[in-house]
Design a protein around this nucleic acid. Sequence first.
DNA 1: TTGAAAGCGCTAACAA
DNA 2: TTGTTAGCGCTTTCAA
Lengths: 326, 326
Amino acid sequence: MEHVAQRAGVSLMTVSRALREPSLVAQPTRDRIQDAITELGYVGSAFAVQLASGRTRLVAVLLPDLRNPAFAVEMQGLAEGLGEGLELIVSGVRGSGTRHDQVARALLGYKPAALVIHGGRHSHEMRELLVRSNVPIVELGSLVARPINIAVGYSNRAAGRVATEHLLQRGYRTIGFVSQSRKDNSRADDRWLGFREALRAAGITPRPELELETSLGYERGAEALKELLCREPKIDAVFFTGDGWALGALFYCQRENISVPGRVAIMGFDDQELASQTVPSLTSIQVPRYRMGWEAGTLLRSQLDGKAPERKRIDLGFKLVHRQTT
Amino acid sequence: MEHVAQRAGVSLMTVSRALREPSLVAQPTRDRIQDAITELGYVGSAFAVQLASGRTRLVAVLLPDLRNPAFAVEMQGLAEGLGEGLELIVSGVRGSGTRHDQVARALLGYKPAALVIHGGRHSHEMRELLVRSNVPIVELGSLVARPINIAVGYSNRAAGRVATEHLLQRGYRTIGFVSQSRKDNSRADDRWLGFREALRAAGITPRPELELETSLGYERGAEALKELLCREPKIDAVFFTGDGWALGALFYCQRENISVPGRVAIMGFDDQELASQTVPSLTSIQVPRYRMGWEAGTLLRSQLDGKAPERKRIDLGFKLVHRQTT
DNA sequence: TTGAAAGCGCTAACAA
DNA sequence: TTGTTAGCGCTTTCAA
């Protein structure tokens, strides 16, 4: 910045001003400075700015898994809700526990304008750290009961229950359940709670052998269905807590000439764009992914501008989309 | 940090050391410091560290569109290739041109350890800025001819040619082409160049009315196919430069009882996981997305550790995966 | 409209 | 093994 100042024949201070508040600098001076900047290819140091001013233009995001397209949509919503002038610093953490905490610490080190966390529960120390950090926290996705600041999401438990009730209502009685590891993934656990709840309410005794945990991937869905059909041939519906598995299972049925929903009904979760396109089209739970990100973004933006309350819990709900596989 | 020092009864410097090089600090001192840190909930300032040390733990990433799952996979690869201790600062830029340049500038302001850019051509000024910034640049995706530092990718043009040659070889003669706006998207343009090249080489006169530009989305694929069939009923194959469109078109055919590949053959691009699962399964071009990210990550990591050459061009190639739709 | 001095929170280089 | 001094590149406050 000093070089620029010299070249433009002004003091360092004037350059700084020309960059932040151009209106305070005389037009000709401003032009000279601008020229110097382009000639020298000057790019200011965001770090120094933030250190000196205390203001930050970073929003930190902690995601369970970068691969999941659902999160990508949320990010786009977040980016667009926040608007210009804020950068996103994104970390994906696979697995859970300590690594999650570590990364959160590292992100907090950037004193971000806000920290957006997708995915339910934090350890006690984590929560403590988050609260004390004084950084606005957005909990995205699962709607936590007691948000630290802002929570935007929907109830995974209610969604799990509604999905299951739908299957029961359509007359299915022997229902399988496929999810990620419930231990590592609170969303999976919540959906499972809803699943069990609905079964019990209908007077059906849950059968653990019909509940499968697997990893992400279309093929895992096919395998899961195969396994379930083998364990209990009388199974008449499967609730996959992710569209990926559900679609994989659906294509498996097509290959094997298993009639859907005649022989077995398939229920997905997340209503990916593809769900409406397949033949038969997939019944699923629609979650407002983009909107979640966007809502969090705009709320954050207005809070950063000092216009919004510090605590808020926004339930964006979900929607059962009944299509042909159930 | 001073508070921590006071509480632990040592100087600020010792705390700094305990954080960076614990081996230089006596065990009991270290413990006291650690206690003070947890009690105070201290989180260091990454900015101050960067400013004082000149070292950065940030890798900036510039993506054309956050939504695209293909990029998400690259990011995961990149994150894992880089290993621990580096944060990713990600920006998605839809559209192109000036906004792209602006965001790149903003990212450069963080003096990142490296800047990863996905997607071909930069404006002249941009290139100038990148070169002068002295930040290692990774150009990911399209393999540029003259990389600034590191380029990791494959040739979109060659991929487009190979895909088209495959269709020609299978006997298709009236071939449609669907892509994003070639003006805004250099990858689309490159694939198109390959497409035209192959047609000419086979002695077929290209017909612009069989070339369609559209936006992303499964449904856009269905619409594109419908439109093409209407414009030229004798069309016998369509090269979709994205699996999303190809799958959308495939499901459209299923709904409308159009035989694939009997009535019309469908060729995709990117070989999404889903491509192998559908019935009929989709012929596509496989691009090593994860590997591209990972390769860039490890290369960058070793360059940051001072172990790798500054310039490199890595062609990871691509693979035609012949399945049932052609 | 412009400039000078002090300092943001940390680390590098040196000294004890 | 620990402490001291200077300064990273900018902004804030105050003065000209």
